[in-house]
Write a protein that binds this DNA or RNA. Structure first.
Lengths: 143, 143
DNA sequence: ATAATATAATTAGACTTCTAATTATGAGAA
DNA sequence: TTCTCATAATTAGAAGTCTAATTATATTAT
């Protein structure tokens, strides 16, 4: 019996996360890096969209953002007279950490791809994207 | 800027986990399935090895196993006059759930691999294995 | 044998994450 | 307008996860 896909995904994802976290200076807590990494390219998203992109539920995000706001990494604002949605923005301090995280992720990916040709890299990304689409699709129960 | 590897891993792994959990009957809590899946083929492992295989720290495992033992899914025993290591065994009830989990994982993997040729499947597994080795290796700091 | 070191598991305490329920707001229909 | 339904965020409470420190046991060296 060979290695299962889900076990490989678990192992690889967990190691990635731990490598990133270990590359930081101890200021951030475990749930924060992924949020900062997302905001780095999506500053101003509303909370609902951040939660979806970071693969966590909204209540989990509420909890993490409260800590981040208290520590001056982000601010939450309403806009357009819409008082239901909250728009989230990086502060200068948050931006600094976000850039650091982005850069560290790049280094870790370089290391992960050591020995890969460009074609292999592309294939892996394509395969994972297809896997992702396959399991995201609502299951066809009747055809 | 294309999708990053770590984001794809996060997304795919999380969806895998949620699909599996959603396929169960609500009896198990979130941390338990991966332990049962491991014990399915490694009954009698000591806790240290289970933690490593399931990519969690020992204290996290202690916490999950306590609940599982209380719910009659596993038992912990000493052996060989060694009172330091604890060997973990599935009960009949635990075995039932473990088999169910194994079978559900297979179905989810089938769905994940929809549209893949055998060669593509093999390549994906190989690539992930290489990624995994690359980021597991101690970093060469001086050569 | 005894002391020093290493190892397996646990405890303690903080943060993350989940689901279910609640609050507040927005949008659409009668 | 006003009622109903939908949506965004939060609260509440339980379980998972982490690191640091502790307990208990085993191994190694003197």
């Amino acid at each position: 019996m060979s290695v299962s896909l889900h076990h490989l995904l678990m192992q690889t994802h967990t190691k990635f996360q731990k490598l990133l976290f270990g590359s930081l200076d101890g200021t951030l807590s475990l749930g924060q890096p992924k949020i900062l990494d997302h905001l780095r390219e999506h500053d101003g998203d509303i909370q609902k969209d951040i939660a979806a992109a970071c693969c966590i539920e909204q209540p989990s995000l509420t909890s993490i953002l409260s800590g981040m706001e208290k520590n001056g990494l982000i601010v939450r604002k309403t806009a357009d007279g819409n008082r239901r949605s909250l728009y989230v923005y990086l502060t200068d301090k948050g931006r600094e950490y976000a850039e650091k995280i982005g850069s560290n992720f790049l280094h870790i990916e370089d290391r992960a791809f050591e020995g890969f040709t460009e074609a292999e890299k592309k294939d892996l990304i394509d395969y994972l994207t297809r896997i992702n689409e396959n399991i995201s699709r609502k299951k066809d129960t009747n055809e």
